[in-house]
């Protein structure tokens, strides 16, 4: 049997234009992610081990908890690397978390309408990430480039988040489309 993967905003994006505007919300379908939990006393070694993993981004969620994000094609290698970290427990979240990538000159102004995080470059530099309320749902915001952010929300909230950020983005001519 061959089961087809379904994305939580599939229906909402079906009619959207493919041509990205200056400000664009790109929706990758192929992200894989894991919650990584460090057990008591292992926090430092887990942090070190996570930093050494190639081809994946490590997002801070809370003390002793991270979300590791990569693409599905490289997922096997990352999964084995994570499984090998001593003192860590790993939970697959690739289907449970939905990633959105917001890019464009107005991305910070748009996110000011979504979250209370101070995204001034001095306060939230490239590489920083944090769990926060985003568009009324709990999520993780990461700055991946000067004007590019990745927002990760729980799958069940993805449609709600997507509708709201698109509505708030109309002011900036935000376009949206699947990345792959």
């Amino acid at each position: 049997m061959n089961f087809v993967l379904r994305h939580p905003v599939e229906e909402l994006l079906a009619a959207a234009p493919a041509e990205p505007a200056l400000n664009h919300l790109s929706v990758p379908r192929n992200r894989a992610s894991w919650s990584v939990l460090a057990h008591k006393g292992s926090e430092a070694t887990v942090v070190q081990a996570l930093a050494a993993i190639e081809g994946a981004s490590v997002r801070f969620c809370g003390p002793e908890e991270w979300l590791v994000v990569t693409n599905r094609d490289g997922a096997g290698a990352v999964a084995s690397a994570l499984a090998a970290i001593p003192g860590a427990s790993v939970v697959e979240q690739g289907d449970g978390r939905t990633v959105f990538s917001l890019a464009g000159p107005d991305s910070r102004a748009l996110l000011a309408k979504c979250t209370a995080l101070d995204l001034h470059p001095d306060a939230f530099a490239i590489g920083r990430s944090a769990n926060a309320l985003v568009c009324h749902v709990g999520g993780n915001v990461a700055r991946v480039a000067r004007d590019t952010y990745e927002i990760t929300v729980m799958r069940s909230f993805a449609a709600s988040f997507f509708s709201e950020i698109c509505l708030l983005g109309r002011e900036f001519g935000l376009s949206a489309g699947f990345a792959d």
């Binding site: 919650s35 939990l37 697959e92 289907d95 449970g96 069940s156």
Partner: peptide
């Protein structure tokens, strides 16, 4: 806090 137990929600991971 001294128990060795860690947990995370996977509510959205599973259909």
């Amino acid at each position: 806090p001294n128990l060795d137990v860690r947990f995370v929600s996977s509510s959205d991971q599973w259909a």
